[in-house]
């Protein structure tokens, strides 16, 4: 069988590193959801290695896109043709899965976003600035504390029989409040359900204020796996919530779609390093530049000891240096 063209999307987030390969008709061929574990470079290497083992011989990557909070790093390591912010990437993916989507609720590991679309374009967005309460890492922590696997956390909420009000404004207070409720004898199911409701309330108050949440509504990001939260959203909004099949890798899917769009309008070959590039050794080093008052923290990415990229400088001196040495 003749090989088809494919596109790779990589989303390096705080908690998970996701990779998606799509084909020419935007179908997901392969997807990976890995824990970043604080080491984005190894997570990416691991991801590429797994992809290479699974489908490496069958796919030909024509373009690669990177997104997520580690998008710049990912862009360098995989050789991305396009590096895009996660808000745009999530919007592109949701529109592909649910054409005509008007509201995207996205809750990831460390941040949550709301994206409002009208007539097929992003009209408005907001990202949590205040606190990480209600994001994936907090739920993770609570699941661990209660000795419940995170994958079953949501189903506990559905078994609740009475409502318990948990203070959800701040993660620290939410936890003390949960402990308080548990010590006064509330059932675990009721407390977990209360937590889900508190997080949804916090999300809607913090991000969705003065925004018209219209259907279709898509809920994505790692936390969409939590059926308790999804149910709490439906109750709070009185509207139906759609959870796409690839809810957990929508950012990476969006990045792959954006890469495909970019390559369609470009004649140059992909910058993608190839699956074998993972054999290289990558290292990140931080340098504090003392040449001026800005005292930038410059990050240098070394591949086999050679600098391949630098950033973090305000004047561009260091980032330029890397580019030059690449040429020379």
């Amino acid at each position: 069988m003749e090989k088809q063209w494919h596109y790779l999307g990589v989303d390096v987030g705080s908690v998970s590193t996701n990779l998606v390969i799509i084909d020419e008709s935007d179908r997901v061929i392969e997807k990976l959801y890995l824990r970043t574990g604080g080491q984005p470079i190894s997570a990416m290497r691991e991801g590429l290695k797994m992809l290479s083992e699974r489908v490496g011989s069958k796919v030909r990557i024509k373009g690669a896109g990177a997104t997520g909070s580690g998008r710049q790093l990912a862009g360098v390591i995989i050789g991305a043709d396009v590096v895009k912010n996660e808000i745009t990437a999530h919007a592109v993916a949701a529109q592909k899965v649910v054409p005509g989507v008007k509201t995207i609720l996205e809750i990831g590991g460390q941040d949550s976003k709301i994206i409002i679309l009208r007539n097929g374009i992003v009209y408005d967005f907001a990202m949590n600035t205040v606190c990480a309460a209600g994001t994936g890492s907090f739920l993770d922590r609570q699941a661990a504390r209660l000795n419940i696997p995170i994958s079953e956390f949501g189903s506990y909420a559905l078994k609740a029989t009475s409502s318990v009000r948990i203070a959800g404004r701040c993660a620290v207070f939410a936890e003390s409040d949960m402990i308080h409720k548990q010590q006064t004898g509330h059932s675990l199911e009721d407390i977990i359900n209360g937590l889900c409701e508190a997080l949804v309330r916090n999300y809607l108050n913090n991000l969705a204020k003065s925004k018209d949440i219209e259907e279709p509504i898509v809920f994505q990001g790692g936390v969409a796996a939590n059926i308790g939260i999804a149910a709490a959203f439906e109750r709070a909004l009185g509207k139906k919530i759609i959870i796409p099949g690839y809810y957990d890798v929508m950012g990476a899917y969006g990045a792959a779609l954006i890469a495909k769009e970019k390559m369609a309008s470009s004649n140059s070959p992909s910058a993608f390093c190839g699956f074998q590039a993972i054999e290289n050794e990558y290292r990140a080093k931080s340098i504090e530049c003392h040449d001026c008052s800005n005292q930038c923290e410059v990050i240098e990415i070394l591949s086999n000891g050679e600098p391949i990229a630098r950033w973090g400088d305000r004047c561009g001196k260091w980032s330029e240096l890397a580019r030059n040495s690449e040429v020379g």
């Binding site: 409002i116 009208r118 007539n119 097929g120 374009i121 992003v122 009209y123 408005d124 967005f125 907001a126 990202m127 949590n128 600035t129 205040v130 913090n206 991000l207 204020k209 003065s210 925004k211 018209d212």
Partner: peptide, 17 residues
């Protein structure tokens, strides 16, 4: 995107957080 598509309908607060 807004410029590409032309202005459409009404818009809401972009609180950014």
């Amino acid at each position: 995107k807004r410029r590409e598509r032309g202005v459409y309908g009404k818009t809401v607060a972009l609180s950014g957080g």
